[in-house]
């Protein structure tokens, strides 16, 4: 799980071009979206959806789940663990 979190943080930094941010600076439980977290927005959400599809073969079928899944690195990691294709 810890390895997946680290991998996910690195993938987020690369996909979203998060300048000046290292994986260590992204808190596992902190919100990814909005002013309190990393400040991501709807375009970033699209990038994350594509990241999940390309990297882990996960397709989010129900868009209403997105808010909870994308809340933090913790929630994203748990979703990937439960749904990733072998």
């Amino acid at each position: 799980m810890e390895q997946l979190k680290q991998e996910l943080k690195e993938a987020l930094i690369e996909a979203l071009n998060l300048e000046d941010i290292t994986p260590d600076e992204i808190e596992d439980g902190a919100p990814l979206f909005g002013a309190q977290g990393l400040g991501l927005d709807s375009i970033d959400a699209l990038e994350i959806i594509l990241l999940l599809e390309r990297r882990y073969g996960i397709r989010i079928e129900n868009p209403s789940e997105g808010k909870a899944i994308f809340y933090s690195v913790d929630t994203l990691t748990a979703y990937i663990e439960a749904n990733r294709k072998p």
Partner: peptide
């Protein structure tokens, strides 16, 4: 690479 699918918006 994505066979015309899964295109990133940015």
């Amino acid at each position: 690479d994505g066979d015309e699918e899964r295109l990133t918006p940015t």
